[in-house]
């Protein structure tokens, strides 16, 4: 009777030992800012034992829960859908919840800082309001004329495919905060707002395309894009952001000529 329990016990121990052997010591170099303490932001190093197959978000959790409770960052779903935890990890905009530690070379210190071009409020938390203002300014909702149909608004599979890529946006701001034009001039709509305008401009059910094109035709609209492809590289959803911006440009030109 006792032997199976013993065996089970030793198997569990083995498993624990195996996991323990996989643990590595990683250094996280985090850009800290707390206006209630100092006006200066500074780097702080945290060392922790962690499985390299875990994500950067797990490491941030470990730091916050076990080492320094004042570390401040946003996260909600923790599975790459809510778009709360976009941050600059090793100099590149990514979602902390979709970045595995083994993929970003844990031999060296891993730098984590807030996304650029937006006001840092505390540690990794930025003021997203200008970003959402640009989003609101492109009217990201269905606009139609005439009477409401009694059934759903139908659409062919091809028509749906036309804007499928831009429906994937989760508004994490990784693209907009990687754009060098946006860094220097917050008046630029930014890639995310244009992507969300694209989602409705190319929707066959929507009738507000003209209005949105007119908004993006302005001096802070799509013509400020320098096609540096930072946005496409940064998008955690793999949206071809620069391509979407180019399609809006093309729509503006073919509308005129």
């Amino acid at each position: 009777m006792s032997s199976p329990t013993l065996e089970k016990h030793s198997a569990a121990l083995d498993a624990a030992e195996n996991t323990a052997s996989q643990m590595i010591t990683a250094t996280f170099r985090i850009r800290r800012f707390n206006p209630e303490v100092s006006e200066e932001a500074s780097w702080q190093d945290f060392q922790l034992e962690i499985d390299p197959k875990e994500r950067v978000l797990d490491a941030l959790h470990k730091i916050k829960w076990d080492q320094d409770g004042t570390l401040t960052f946003r996260r909600s779903c923790a599975h790459g859908i809510c778009g709360s935890d976009a941050m600059r990890i090793n100099g590149k905009n990514r979602l902390a919840c979709k970045t595995l530690i083994k993929d970003i070379n844990p031999q060296k210190p891993i730098t984590v800082e807030a996304i650029k071009g937006l006001t840092v409020l505390k540690d990794l938390v930025v003021d997203m309001e200008p970003f959402f203002q640009a989003y609101r300014d492109v009217m990201p909702f269905l606009i139609t004329n005439g009477n409401e149909p009694t059934r759903e608004r139908r659409q062919t599979a091809e028509d749906r495919e036309r804007f499928d890529d831009t429906t994937k946006c989760i508004l994490c701001a990784a693209c907009t905060s990687s754009c060098p034009v946006f860094w220097n001039d917050g008046q630029y709509f930014g890639p995310a707002a244009i992507v969300n305008a694209h989602r409705f401009i190319f929707d066959s059910r929507d009738e507000g395309g003209e209005q949105r094109l007119e908004i993006l035709n302005d001096k802070d609209g799509v013509w400020r894009c320098r096609t540096t492809f930072n946005c496409t590289d940064a998008c955690p959803r793999g949206i071809e952001v620069t391509k979407a911006i180019q399609e809006v440009k093309r729509a503006l030109i073919t509308r005129r000529f």
């Binding site: 206006p35 100092s38 006006e39 006001t119 203002q133 860094w183 220097n184 917050g186």
Partner: peptide, 10 residues
């Protein structure tokens, strides 16, 4: 402390 606002914020 004052926060650093980005240039020409929307």
């Amino acid at each position: 402390a004052p926060v650093i606002e980005p240039p020409r914020k929307r």
